Each structure stands twice: as structure tokens, then as C-alpha cells.
Computed example of a mutant assay.
Amino acid sequence: MEVFSEISFIEVLDLLGTFAFAISGIRLASGKNIDWFGAYVIGLVTAIGGGTIRDLLLDVRPFWMLDATYLVITGVALLAAILFKEKLLRLGNTLFMFDTVGLGLFTTVGVAKSFAAGLPFWACILMGAITGTAGGVIRDVLINEVPLLFRKDIYALACIAGGLVFFICYQFDFLIPVVELLAAATVIIIRLVAVKFHIQLPILNLSHTRQDREE
């Protein structure tokens, strides 16, 4: 098993996204009185959780069991968080950018792998969203936070939009690399615009008012 093999530019970006997801999990774990090993586990599930669920649903061996790079990157992320914690705190916007790029790339990978497995387009779009977001859901559950997926932020919807763009471009016979690039770019742009301009979904509130309860 090779830990680091020859990789393409897209895979480099994928690994950078993995690093960012791992850092985000480790940073959130740091405020929960969790030890180093626990922080590593939180970072790891953040980075590989979505892809693992995708592969299990596709009935294939999870990707990280075939390539130890993801385990190593999570360890590097933990070491970086410990050694450079002050600098990392000042790199919030940069890490957010990597996280957003990772979201777009992972979503596209999930859609592409599901499409190659012969799933219908709607299932592929859902699988892309799972790949991009499920790791964060597992992370938030483990550290007792409301998952970002269920808050007001435009997160999973960006993944769904990216999946739709994937299939629209495919129907117009775009080259596959172009299709994947446009799908990933759609997720990234929607996420960035939503955060920049504070675009959020309305909160569902079905609880009764005090007056209703009194009546």
C-alpha cells in the first residue's frame, strides 16, 4: 500500500480540502475538553465521513482503506494545530476557503462516482451532497453541536445545485473535466456568496406563542 503516490492537480486540491476539513474538526474539538487522540478522531471523521458513507452505499470498500494518505493528512493537521495554534486562529478566512473548495470537490467526486456506478441522476445528486456534508454532521454530533447542515447556512443546497449543474452540463456533452470543474465551482461560488451576503434559509418555528399556550 502506497501512502503517497503520483497524484493529479485535482487530487492535490482534494487533499487540501481533506486537510481543511480535518483542521475544522480538530479546532471544534479543542473547545470540548477532548484529548489529542479524541481530536484526531474528530478530525478524521470530518475528513472521511462523507466519502465513507458514499462508498458503503455504493457497496464498495471505503476509499481510505485503500489509501492511507487521508489518515496521514489528518495526523499532519493535528500536529499543525498543536504547533501553530496561534497562527491557525488568524487563518480563519483561509481555512474557510479551503473548506469551501473541499466541499465543492467532494460533492463533485460523490456525484461522479455514483454516476459511474449507474445510479439515476437524482440519487447521484444526493450522494454528492452526502459526500460533501456527512462528515461535518458526524463531527457535530460527536461534539454535541447542532449540525451545520441543519442550521440556516446555505450548505447542502449548494451541493445539490452543484449536482444539478453536473447533469445539465453532461446533457450538453461538455467534456467530463469541464463538467466536474463547473459543478465544483457552482458549489464553491454559492457557498461563498451565501456567507459573504449573509444569505440564509428561514428558521422553521412551529411552536405556539405564549398567548396560544394560555388559551
Rank of each mutant, 00 (worst) to 15 (best):
D212K: 15
L142G: 03
K196Y: 12
V76R: 00
T69G: 00
A80K: 04
R151F: 07
I160Y: 08
L95K: 04
G162V: 07
I125L: 04
G102L: 05
H198C: 08
I189E: 10
I203L: 11
Q171F: 10
G50D: 08
A129W: 02
F84I: 09
N144M: 11
R210E: 12
V72Q: 05
D35C: 05
G132Q: 09
T69P: 00
T131K: 06
L105N: 01
F197K: 13
F19M: 09
I189K: 07
L83Q: 12
Y40E: 00
E6L: 15
Q171V: 05
G17E: 00
V165I: 15
F21S: 03
T46E: 02
S8M: 03
L79E: 03
K87W: 10
S5M: 07
I23T: 03
L119G: 00
D14V: 06
W36V: 13
G43H: 02
S30G: 13
V3G: 11
V72N: 05
A47E: 09
Y70I: 06
V146P: 00
S8N: 14
S114F: 01
L204Y: 08
T108I: 10
F96R: 09
K152P: 01
T94C: 06
G75W: 07
L164V: 15
M97E: 02
C169L: 13
A68S: 13
V60M: 10
L103A: 06
E2A: 07
A22R: 01
L181I: 14
I26G: 07
S24R: 00
L95G: 01
L105K: 04
T209W: 00
C159Y: 01
K152C: 00
P177H: 09
